[in-house]
Nucleic acid binder design. Structure first.
Lengths: 188, 188
DNA sequence: GTCTATAGCTTGATAGAC
DNA sequence: GTCTATCAAGCTATAGAC
């Protein structure tokens, strides 16, 4: 057999960028082929289920990458310091607000039956994101109810700043979000 | 000639719903035909420029509908009362947070040349949205700089709550946004 | 594990009748 | 202003060679 033209990780990184920018319908196999350097048939060798399989793999990959980005939340040390580390990580991961959110891009569009398997799967990432923030808010002393609200609002402002930045090109609100995150979650 | 099968306004309403749910790539001419009751050729009679023409018409239509929704901001009367009226209007327009934002749905995806004509056009709606909030914040006594930041953050939280609601099905953050809007913009 | 070649379908778009 | 019929191009997916 010929050697792998592209490593698993490089492959997933290229696919993630593409799906984030184009969404599910927008990302055609021709684009995928071009972005990865693999011909159609090679893509089907790696992802027997086709395009949907690829999108689900991107979702799995993003979930695990996100865990790394959020990892400092669950480490030892000062709460605010941990949150600030995560704010920095997210800034790096989203190129200071210039990249779109995969959850947003892949949750547009429904099947004829009104469902969207990828969106259902990707909603778990969103919930895990909120849940991580919720835990750190609890650690900072918030009540169960308050912690949930603080976490949801922090994620809301994160997602919103990426939408606004994509539309207007202005990343100011993302940067304000980064600065504000520790205060939002700890309430002080 | 046969009579119009569907009025201009009904047509635009159906198209807006479709593009909001499916995005540009996701909304196929087959779906458009089904949603409007018009065959392909009839659509091309009304929109000679094809699908892109339709999307631009939806953008224009949404811009004028949005002006109506935001109109109370520019009327006479108590500032907070006017803002609360707009919060109610937006709740109605977005079905209490259950509908997606057109700006979000249509700003996913780029042409090969890196541009996206529809997204560029629709960015103007986003800017007008922010600008309306900015004016009312000024009217409430905020400095130019503060008014801009308050307006941006209000729109950020609005867009974010729609993304989170679409993903998780939870409209709680949208309802909190409605309650909070007057305080956010006036700073009190 | 990669490729070329191809199948079969859907897409966006058009011609021309009524 | 609507329609049927049709088109080329692009789509996802597969078969089979190396």
């Amino acid at each position: 057999m010929p050697p792998e033209k592209i490593s698993e990780r490089e492959l997933m990184l290229a696919l993630t960028i593409l799906f984030r920018e184009q969404g599910f319908e927008g990302a055609t196999l021709s684009m995928i082929s071009k972005a990865t350097g693999l011909k159609r048939a090679s893509l089907y060798h790696r992802f027997p289920g086709g395009k949907q399989d690829i999108a689900l793999a991107v979702t799995d990959f993003t979930e695990s990458e996100f865990k790394k980005v959020l990892a400092p939340l669950h480490e030892a040390g000062n709460v605010k310091t941990r949150i600030r580390k995560v704010a920095r990580n997210l800034g790096e991961y989203y190129d200071d607000g210039r990249r779109s959110c995969l959850v947003d891009a892949l949750s547009v569009g429904k099947e004829a039956d009104g469902r969207n398997i990828i969106a259902e799967r990707i909603a778990e990432i969103m919930e895990a994101f909120i849940s991580s923030f919720e835990q750190i808010a609890r650690a900072a002393g918030a009540s169960a109810k308050d912690a949930r609200i603080r976490a949801e609002d922090a994620v809301v402002r994160f997602e919103g700043s990426l939408v606004v930045a994509r539309s207007t090109g202005d990343t100011g609100s993302f940067k304000r979000w980064q600065k504000d995150l520790a205060r939002m979650l700890t309430g002080t």
